[in-house]
Design a binder for these strands. Structure first.
Lengths: 257, 257
DNA sequence: CGAGTAGTTGAGTGGCCTCAAAGCGCGTGG
DNA sequence: CCACGCGCTTTGAGGCCACTCAACTACTCG
C-alpha cells in the first residue's frame, strides 16, 4: 500500500466528489439560507434578509461556462450559492492568470458605485454552479438602507486586499517550486477535506490551472508536482491533488529562489 | 550657479522639488483642509468633518522613518496629509517588495473590525511627511455614525483590489523590461509633472526602489533604465526619472516575455 | 576635496520557458 | 464489465532571460 510504483491494480475513480447535476438551480429555500449566511449580511435580521430575496436572481452555470467576460459593462454583483467560480485575467499575449477561486458565500462582480465601469477580469464557473445576481443599483440600495452591510464589506475587502498583496509577494520573491507549495497549502486549508490519502483538495485541479495560479507553465507545474509526489509530500491524480505531508510542504514553500 | 548650459552632462542639481523641512507637522488649518478633501469623507458636511478633527492626531516623519512595521499590533488607521508613504512587505529571505506608494489623501493601516490583528506589511515615510492617525475604535465609530463613509470606502477598496490584481498580472506575465516600463508609466500618470525633460516623476526614485516595485534586482533595473535612456524613452539621474516618450514606453510595456 | 552612496557594466551560471513526444488515468461506449 | 481513446500528464533536450558576484564610475554632500 505504501508503494506508489507502477501499480495499476487499484482501479479507483477520481476521489473528488461528483457534483450533482440537479444543483444547477437552487430552490427558494436554499437561496434564502445562502443569503442568511452571507458574511456581509450578518448584522441583518432574518426578516430583513428575507426582504432582500427578491433582489437576487439565481442562475445555473455549467462547468466551464462564463458568468461574465472581461470588458463587459459591469452592471451586476454576484454571489456564489453553490459550486466554485474562478476569477481570471487574460494577458495581451493570451497568458491567463487565475486570480481567485470563489466558493459558497463569496461575492464577486461590480462593487463600484456606477455601472459605467467594465469588468477588468472574467468569471468562469469551475464546476456546475448556482450563482445569485443583483443589479448594481439594487445592491447600492441595500448599502443605503442597511449601513452595517458596508461596514462588513470594508472588512472583507480589506482582507482580500491583504491576500492579494500576499500573492504579489509570493509571485515576486519565490521560486516556482515554493509558489506551488504555497498555493497547495492555501487550497488545502480552504478546500481541503479529510481523506485516507491526506488532505484532499475538494476541487478539480489540473496542472494547467495550478500553473495559472502560480504564473508559470503547465510543464513546470507538472515537474514540481511530480517531484513533490515522489518525495511523499502530496498525492496526485488526473485533476486532483491531496496534501499528505503539510509540514514538509510548508518547508518547501519557504525556500527562497 | 555661474556655469550655464554646458554639454549633455551639464552640472545640474536634481530636478526634483525639495521638500521643506518645516512640513513635518501640519497646522490645524492644513489638517482640516486635508480631512475635507478625503475621498471617503466626501459625503459629509463641513461641520461634520470639523467634528472629526479631534479624532486624528498629526505626526511628522522624517524621510526613511517607519510609521509602523509588519507584525506590530494593528491598532490605528492613518491618512497621508502631506508627503509620500510607501507600503513594504519583507520576505523571509530579506527581499523587499514595494507594494504601494501613497500620497496626499490616501489612507493605510488597520481597516479590520478588531484591533487584534497585526500589520501584515510595513509603512515607511519615503520623504518628509505628515501623517494623521486615528485609533481603530474611533474610526469604527465614524463608520457607525456616518454610513456614507463605508459606502465610499467599499468603492475605494474595490479600486485598490483591482489595482493589486493588475500588478499580479504584470508580475506573473511580463518580462522585467515590460514590468519596469509599466511601472514608470503608472508612476508618471500618478506623480508626473510637466518639465523640460518630459514628464518628471515627482518622487525620489532609486534603481533599488524601482527594482522593489518590479520584483527584480537593482542591477536588472539599472540595465533596463540604461537601455531606455539610451533609446530616448526616458531621462534619468541620481534618484529621479522622467518619461520623455510615453508612446514608445507603452510599446515596451506590452511586449510579453 | 575626499568619502560615501547611487549607478553602471561585465562575465558566468542556473532556473524556467519552449518545443516535442511518449505515457497513462479516467469516463464512456460497446 | 472490460476495453477503448481522449486529453491530461509526464519527461527530455536545448536555449534564453535574469540573477549573482564583482569591479568600476560618477554623483552629492560635508
Amino acid at each position: 500500500m505504501a508503494t506508489t510504483g507502477r501499480k495499476p491494480p487499484a482501479r479507483r475513480a477520481s476521489p473528488l466528489l461528483r457534483h450533482a447535476v440537479e444543483t444547477a438551480h437552487c430552490t427558494h429555500a436554499v437561496k434564502l439560507s445562502v443569503l442568511r449566511q452571507l458574511p456581509f449580511l450578518a448584522d441583518l435580521t432574518d426578516s430583513e434578509v428575507q426582504g432582500l430575496c427578491g433582489i437576487f436572481r439565481d442562475t445555473g452555470y455549467a462547468s466551464g461556462q462564463a458568468v461574465y467576460v472581461a470588458g463587459e459593462p459591469a452592471r451586476r454583483l454576484f454571489v456564489v450559492a453553490s459550486g466554485k467560480v474562478k476569477i481570471v485575467r487574460t494577458g495581451p499575449d493570451g497568458q491567463d492568470l487565475l486570480v481567485d477561486m470563489l466558493s459558497d458565500g463569496d461575492f464577486f462582480g461590480s462593487l463600484e458605485r456606477l455601472g459605467e465601469e467594465r469588468y477588468s477580469e472574467g468569471a468562469v464557473a469551475h464546476v456546475q454552479s448556482c450563482v445569485l445576481a443583483a443589479s448594481a443599483e439594487d445592491f447600492q440600495s441595500i448599502l443605503a438602507r442597511f449601513p452595517p452591510v458596508s461596514v462588513r464589506l470594508v472588512s472583507i475587502l480589506a482582507g482580500r486586499l491583504r491576500s492579494a498583496h500576499e500573492k504579489l509577494q509570493m509571485l515576486s520573491g519565490l521560486s516556482v517550486e515554493a509558489r506551488i507549495a504555497s498555493i497547495l497549502l492555501r487550497l488545502a486549508s480552504r478546500f481541503g477535506e479529510a481523506h485516507p490519502l491526506g488532505t484532499l483538495i475538494q476541487l478539480p485541479l489540473s496542472r494547467e490551472e495550478l500553473a495559472e495560479m502560480a504564473g508559470t507553465t503547465t510543464e513546470s507545474a507538472s515537474r514540481v508536482t511530480s517531484r513533490f509526489s515522489r518525495d511523499g509530500l502530496i498525492r496526485t491524480g488526473r485533476r486532483w491533488v491531496a496534501v499528505s505531508d503539510r509540514d514538509r510542504l510548508a518547508v518547501a514553500a519557504e525556500s527562497g529562489s
